[in-house]
Amino acid sequence: MARQRGNRWQADVVLDGKRERKSFASEAEALAYERAVASGKPLPGAITFHQFHREHFSYLWGDIKAPQAVQFNLDALDKLIPPETPIPDISSSYIIGLVNKMKASGSSNATINRRLSTLSRLLRHAEAMEMMHRPRIAYLKETEGRERVLSRDEEARAILFFEHMGLLEAKALFNFLLYTGCRLGETFTLPKDRVRDGRVTFHYTVTKTSKTRIIPLVGPAATAWADISKLHRGHERPFGGYPRDTFRNHWNRLRDHLAPGDDEFVPHMLRHTCASRLVSKGIPLPQVMLWMGHKNIQTTMRYSHLAPKDLDMAALALMEA
């Protein structure tokens, strides 16, 4: 007999000698499912993948720092999963098919894994609601991280491109990311009162590591902040007045101009470039760690090869001792 569980209704049936519980949006759907099983008729369709993630998005991701990134992954999955696909139909073999489609489209392993992570959380929730048995998801092997850095020549050409095309917001965001090393998501939530006295504060509520960091606002970054503040004078969060989708479009135009076909030419490489330049100029790794807001020194150590003179200086110190 169907019974209510929270705001949904659960049907309790026996299929092929095994007891099964499935969840439905209404009592009528649950009862119809039970009657269909008892009579041997074709089973009514379960809630679809698209319906399920729309209904449960707020519950699963409403309080995270960057829900837009999750929505971007779900939008990508919606293009691969037909809208009429019931959530229980997403099996391990079905997911392997999704991975093959994403590989064929040119998606990187890192991109595929982010989408699989979003899918996994959604299916874990469906399992908790007793709608399905969660399938096994095998993640793909990723490289240690992007190694792409921006050369000084590419930086100059990018600035010229943005100026020539009249993309002043893109130019400001480009320089701010490059000369602060901050994450893209940290810029869009940065309010005016956290930039003062030549420093910028990235509050723990918006950082990936949940720790506040304060860094100097230097040169092009200071100019970029002044420019975006003028362009969005009435906006409490100046970069927030520049839609992410618009920036993504502007960035793709820049990539097509400077580095067509280079899938590592992404905004995050500006953060990687900032860290690389700090280390190559001899800034000690613990200070780079603080500037970048890395959670641990192991993350910063990936840049250590850019400071080859460190061991030479250590050898010299031994000789002088």
Rank of each mutant, 00 (worst) to 15 (best):
P260G: 05
L231Q: 13
S280Q: 02
H257N: 05
T223D: 13
R157V: 06
R196W: 04
I283E: 00
T223K: 10
A221T: 05
K230S: 11
V279A: 00
Y204L: 15
A226M: 07
V206K: 07
A259C: 11
A170V: 02
G240R: 05
K230M: 08
F162V: 08
F161Y: 14
R152F: 06
A221H: 04
R213L: 07
A224I: 01
H235E: 15
R271C: 12
A170R: 03
P284C: 01
D197E: 13
W251K: 04
L217C: 02
A170W: 02
P243N: 09
L168P: 01
R255N: 03
L254F: 03
L217D: 04
E264I: 01
H232V: 15
E186L: 13
H250K: 01
G282Y: 00
P243C: 07
E163L: 12
A226E: 11
A170Y: 03
D197W: 00
S229G: 14
R196K: 11
H203T: 11
I283H: 00
T187F: 02
V206Y: 06
G198C: 07
T223F: 00
P267V: 15
P216G: 05
R183D: 07
V206Q: 09
R277K: 11
F247H: 06
H164L: 09
G241I: 13
E169I: 01
F176Y: 15
A275D: 02
V149T: 13
G219F: 03
L173K: 10
R152M: 08
H232I: 14
L150T: 03
E236Y: 06
G219S: 10
G240A: 12
D227I: 03
E264V: 04
I228S: 06
G261V: 14
D262S: 08
L173I: 12
F176V: 11
W225E: 07
K192G: 06
E163P: 00
R277Y: 09
K192L: 12
S280N: 00
I159A: 10
L285E: 00
C274D: 07
E186P: 07
L167H: 09
Q287K: 06
M269Y: 07
L270K: 11
S151L: 09
H235C: 15
H164T: 15
L167F: 12
Y242I: 08
F161S: 07
M269G: 07
F174H: 03
F174L: 06
G185P: 06
K211D: 01
K230N: 05
V200I: 15
D245Y: 02
E169P: 00
R152A: 14
R255G: 05
T246F: 01
V195H: 09
M165A: 11
I283Q: 00
A275N: 04
G241Q: 14
N252G: 05
T207W: 13
E186G: 11
L270I: 14
F188S: 13
R271E: 08
F188P: 03
D256N: 12
A275E: 02
S151H: 06
L173Y: 08
G166S: 04
K208M: 04
E169W: 02
R248Q: 09
V149G: 00
V200W: 11
V200K: 11
R194Q: 14
E236W: 02
R196S: 13
L168N: 12
R194T: 08
S210E: 13
Y179E: 14
R194F: 14
H272S: 10
P220S: 02
R255I: 09
W225D: 05
R199M: 11
